[in-house]
Simulated assay, not measured.
Amino acid sequence: MPLALGADMQGPEAWLLLLLLLASLAVPPLPSLNPGPALEEGQGLTLAASCTAEGSPAPNVTWDTEVKGTMSSRTFEHSRSAAVTSEFRLVPSRSMNGRPLTCVVSHPGLLQDQRITHILQVACEYWVLGGAPWALRVRS
């Protein structure tokens, strides 16, 4: 029996049509987090991480962190979905070492926000008595 739109639609036909409509409207995103290059104290503004999520409609990608930095996002539209990539940039300092940087993805197809956490690792250099330089790699 073919599906027909109408006020008299009931039962399994109505549920099937509703499920088909919902499936075509919301495609839950599949987020991924990619750490940037190695961070070293004294670098200028550097990419700490990027986060990408693709879904329909376009997901919302934000960052949750106490680290001071800047966020930028771009969206790529496809025929049936959209990919959003957000980048988090910072000026590395030793106080950031071991701090969490969390990508947060929200979307109507998700019951709750998806969160992916990256722990920052910042290499730093310091001077000891006598002026000899020593490199210290700080690990969390």
Rank of each mutant, 00 (worst) to 15 (best):
M1C: 09
M1G: 10
M1R: 11
P2K: 01
P2Y: 01
A4F: 11
G6R: 05
A7E: 15
A7L: 15
A7S: 14
A7K: 12
A7I: 13
M9E: 15
Q10W: 09
G11S: 10
G11L: 09
G11I: 04
P12I: 10
P12A: 13
E13D: 14
E13N: 05
L16K: 09
L20N: 06
L21N: 13
L25V: 15
A26N: 12
A26K: 03
A26I: 08
V27D: 09
P29R: 01
P31R: 00
S32H: 01
L33Y: 11
L33C: 10
L33M: 06
P37S: 03
L39H: 05
E41C: 04
Q43W: 02
G44I: 09
T46M: 08
A48G: 06
A48D: 02
A49C: 14
A49T: 01
A49H: 07
T52Y: 02
E54P: 04
P57W: 07
P57S: 14
A58K: 04
P59Q: 01
T62F: 11
D64R: 06
D64M: 03
E66V: 14
K68G: 10
K68M: 15
G69T: 01
T70R: 12
E77K: 14
S79L: 12
S79P: 10
S79D: 09
R80M: 15
R80H: 14
R80Q: 12
S81I: 03
A83E: 11
T85K: 00
S86H: 13
L90T: 01
V91F: 06
S93Q: 13
R94Q: 13
L101H: 02
L101Q: 00
L101K: 02
C103E: 05
C103G: 07
S106W: 00
L110A: 00
L111S: 12
Q114E: 06
R115Q: 07
T117P: 07
T117V: 02
T117L: 01
L120C: 07
V122L: 03
A123R: 08
C124H: 15
C124F: 07
W127S: 06
V128T: 09
V128D: 14
L129G: 08
L129Y: 11
G130D: 04
G130C: 05
G131Q: 04
P133S: 06
R137H: 13
V138L: 11
V138K: 08
R139I: 15
S140A: 09
